[in-house]
Design a protein around this nucleic acid. Sequence first.
DNA 1: TTCCGGTGCTGAAAGGTTTTAGCACTGACG
DNA 2: CGTCAGTGCTAAAACCTTTCAGCACCGGAA
Lengths: 342, 342
Amino acid sequence: MAVTKRPTLADVAARAGLSKTAVSLVLNNRPGSRLSADAVARIHEAARDLNYRPNAQARSLRLGTTGTVGFISDDVTVTRFASAMIRGLLDAADESDRGVLIAETFNHPKQLGKAMEAMADRQVDGLIFGALSARLIDLPPLPEGMRAVTVNCVNPDIPVAVLPSEEEAGYAVTRHLLDAGHRDGIAIIGNAPVARTTPRISVTIGRRFDGIHRALDEAGVTPAAVADIEEWEPWNGYDGAKAVLDSGAPVTALLCLNDRVAFGAQQAMQEKGLRVPDDLSIASFDDDQIAAYLRPGLTTARLPYLEMGRRALELLLDPDPTPGEHLVQMPLQVRGSIRSLT
Amino acid sequence: MAVTKRPTLADVAARAGLSKTAVSLVLNNRPGSRLSADAVARIHEAARDLNYRPNAQARSLRLGTTGTVGFISDDVTVTRFASAMIRGLLDAADESDRGVLIAETFNHPKQLGKAMEAMADRQVDGLIFGALSARLIDLPPLPEGMRAVTVNCVNPDIPVAVLPSEEEAGYAVTRHLLDAGHRDGIAIIGNAPVARTTPRISVTIGRRFDGIHRALDEAGVTPAAVADIEEWEPWNGYDGAKAVLDSGAPVTALLCLNDRVAFGAQQAMQEKGLRVPDDLSIASFDDDQIAAYLRPGLTTARLPYLEMGRRALELLLDPDPTPGEHLVQMPLQVRGSIRSLT
DNA sequence: TTCCGGTGCTGAAAGGTTTTAGCACTGACG
DNA sequence: CGTCAGTGCTAAAACCTTTCAGCACCGGAA
């Protein structure tokens, strides 16, 4: 018993009693091809009967286009919530029937080159570069004529980039605290003197601060304290918050620079017997998973990875996208961590 | 100025002054093809000069094999730590120079069918099916002759499956508690009367319990309490732990059925002013990210997603893999949440 | 001389698709 | 009757690779 092979165009043609040309014309319903209604019907019927699906390699070979895009990132697929970026990509890809080929480089330049070659060999129609933190990335030269978009990162060779709208978010979160009546009791947990001015670490984090300070300045408010912390992990948040609380500054709210920091800050509060939000409010950024796990939930500005991934793919497929940064709004997730003082 | 096209085999042949056949033979260094050392050298030189890379579509068309595998899952890529599965896959794929095409179905049968067709159209050499929870999944019939492996799920049509070694982990975690001197003070937070017997929810969770009870029985220990909870989210853990603590049972350790439950249990403890591990020890499963964020860190049995992904790809490429379940060990991550009573 | 095996290489087909150029026929128009 | 436009369809080339079959030559053996 022979293995039943996939039917080809020729099989459909034979069954319909017509030529391969006719079948191709009909199935791709090319305008300007005038086949009799009868022929069209016979072809469709034959294709259905045989369960015909075109061979993508053959088509690619002929067309020079594969209907596949590549996603190359340092560590996105694999890490935390940033993987939502992939989801957005996949959703959008699915809608336009593209396949998505992925590769991770773990910040290894050699891996990066290899991944790019592998993608080029497979003739992807475009490349999306992602990164875990929104930074300036280095890339080897792109293959001639290769379309590309960066998402959550930037590169001088690639004109279109998708980034989170950090300035706006910084403003919105701070505004939210101010609107709840917090004024001079706002302490900022997190600082980034180096990252702010080092694009290779982050191109957006400075904007988060800019937004915060725009809101504070507008309201004529000075922060009660600013905790300097090296990194933005829970243990750093713990240390930072502890220092602020120990200092005895009259604090009503902790504005934490991300959720992991907020999580650590909350641990420090708990140790002191302080409760959220009754004793102290907390606002934050990112909407990491823990933001929803905490009790009460954290009010935080969500990093819109899903939307960014989707947007990146749309821009990649757009025949002429407007160059420059495409900022995606960071929506405020209001939960129970902020107490109204009014 | 013409766009410089990718060089083809013919270009290399022309530059080397030989035939395409010769070039193909040499570049794939086919055994049995006897070309002069001079010819071989000229071909390699020409290929290098032109920066020749073979066209994957053309090769696939000829060979009927693409060097690409597909990964289809319900929600894996996109969700937290399970995405490590992808990392393992990608690592292994990279080592054997395969591409990985991914698709997520979000449990939509229609999406699943579509994804499988898309993969089949692109002629992937094999398909890996993943799921977020280790359950029995339904699949439309596989294309004739398509190789397949399931990872973190099972399907009757697919003989080779990769699963975490839950029984062993249940035993190990419990044993760890017992070895630390905890006996009749062990309370189990989490239950799964339905899931245990419903493969469509989980095929492995029962084994986790089996391992726990094997260890307890061996030691002649009866749990101090078992908290019945609906789901295994932090809020359920909170409720369950609270109930146990309120009951006044003489508890020395909480054996939580996963980290999110443990997280919630810890919140309940904090409310009562109880500290980990001084007042109460906690052991758990999964090694979700929060396990490392908690203070102290959670001692937990890690779901080995990375290794499972890698294993799945290796099995997919294995010409004749041994059928059946391939269990991957769940290593114990020892952190500070367990107090030794000895 | 013929035959033969070995050496070094190549022509052409095949894989499945899209597309260009064009064939054969009909009916209308001059 | 010749021409011409339109209609319905097809042959063949092209995309780039791999591989089968075989060519031309040479030296040695019969």
